[in-house]
């Protein structure tokens, strides 16, 4: 019992609950204007009705579809381009400046351009999520290969390994470690790209709903949607972490006592 009370999770949960109770009390006592800061119970009510009435499902489907497709396509594009650039100097000469520029700018500013080019449906949201993820993954893969431990490369070479063996035994595992370290950020980027794309112009999606809530000054709906997006992203974070622990088992395995 004592150990349970002393646990970090318990202390964090208690602090969050306390904050929500304080917020609720301040709202009910009219110390906070419910128009701007509706009480948590009102937010929960809105959230419940979103699911109970079923209106949220098409929006969830739209956002998830665009984010997942954008995430997967961005991972594939980033890995392929990162590997190609790291192993082919001439390609690196061409790709690196483009990627550096794309990395330097806030890439969400491309959203209006994608809407003009690809329309307000799924494609423009996927494109924005893809570009956000692909640039991140490109640099993760590129760095993973460039910063690979040269002692491992020499080890494999002195064992007789050529380029193919080096890629399989050294570069791919090294890049996987870098990639997994960036997967959670990539998940966040995919949702950012999708929601911002929907926010700019769309007919469905959580970003579209957010835009609607903002234009109607519906703070309870806005907060409910923000919480919803946070919950789903945190769920995907957990999946990423499980994947990371599985693929990088060697990194998380318990060290013996020395």
């Amino acid at each position: 019992m004592k150990t349970w009370i002393n646990s970090t999770i318990f202390r964090r949960s208690a602090a969050l609950l306390l904050l929500l109770l304080l917020w609720e009390a301040l709202s009910r006592l009219a110390w906070l204007d419910p128009f701007y800061a509706p009480p948590p119970s009102r937010v929960a009510q809105v959230m419940f009705s979103l699911f109970a009435e079923g209106g949220i499902w098409p929006h969830l489907e739209a956002t998830f579809t665009a984010a997942i497709i954008g995430l997967l396509a961005g991972l594939v594009a980033g890995v392929v381009l990162g590997f190609s650039a790291a192993l082919t100097p001439i390609l690196a000469e061409l790709l690196e400046p483009v990627m550096i520029v794309l990395n330097a700018i806030p890439r969400v500013i491309l959203a209006p351009l994608f809407v003009i080019w690809l329309g307000i449906e799924l494609a423009s949201k996927v494109a924005l999520a893809l570009i956000l993820v692909a640039v991140l993954v490109f640099f993760a893969v590129h760095s993973g290969i460039k910063d690979v431990d040269h002692r491992l490369v020499e080890r494999v070479r002195t064992l007789g390994g050529g380029r193919r063996v080096l890629i399989r035994e050294v570069y791919v595992p090294s890049v996987t470690a870098w990639l997994m370290g960036n997967l959670k950020v990539a998940v966040g980027f995919a949702f950012t790209g999708t929601v911002v794309g929907e926010f700019v112009a769309s007919s469905r999606g959580l970003g579209y709903l957010l835009q609607f809530a903002q234009s109607t000054y519906n703070a309870a709906l806005t907060i409910a949607l923000i919480v919803l997006i946070m919950v789903f992203v945190l769920l995907l974070f957990s999946v990423s972490e499980l994947l990371e622990r599985r693929l990088l088992r060697w990194r998380y395995i318990q060290e013996p006592a020395r």
Partner: peptide, 20 residues
């Protein structure tokens, strides 16, 4: 430095040269 592949087990590390 021992320069063993950290993502391979001891057995896989020793087997690597033989597989090559």
């Amino acid at each position: 430095e021992d320069a063993l592949l950290p993502w391979r087990t001891a057995r896989q590390n020793v087997a690597l040269g033989l597989r090559i």
